[in-house]
Amino acid sequence: MKLEGEYLFNGPREEVWNIVRDPDVLATCIPGTQTLKQVNENEYEGAIGVRIGPVNAAFTGKLTVSDEIPPESCTLTAEGKGAAGFARGVGHVVLEEQGSDKTLLKYTGELIIGGKLMSVGQRLIDSVGKSMINKGFETLDKTLATRLAAKS
């Protein structure tokens, strides 16, 4: 499955980059995340619960950040599995400055999903996935606003 999209953040690029690379912030913004801890500079481990239609899936997995060009771009590789199946995804994230106080995040990627999650939930994966991504960005944006407010 191909992933593609963008989100406009209300903040300068450096700040957006900082929160995207902060595991504590990420843990709060990825819906369903139960734990997310950094195991080394570019690797995180965690657990997440996702509900897709009739499938309630608990995953444990790994998130790796590579090809980092702060604060412009990076590649995220995620791998998770659980009783309801597995997911493997690679995404490339680019941050573009839109003036001094706005940043456009663009992402493209590829997601492989398997097991019950696919055979039972296939019809809903797309919409659940999109809604998770958007919710995540909205939460990030709110966190960003709080940080910026605290600074000013």
């Binding site: 492989i112 696919m118 055979s119 039972v120």
Partner: peptide, 14 residues
């Protein structure tokens, strides 16, 4: 099946 060999409609819903 998708190109990775995953069955995409394994219920009587689909």
């Amino acid at each position: 099946y998708d190109e990775n060999g995953q069955l995409m409609n394994g219920t009587f819903m689909d």
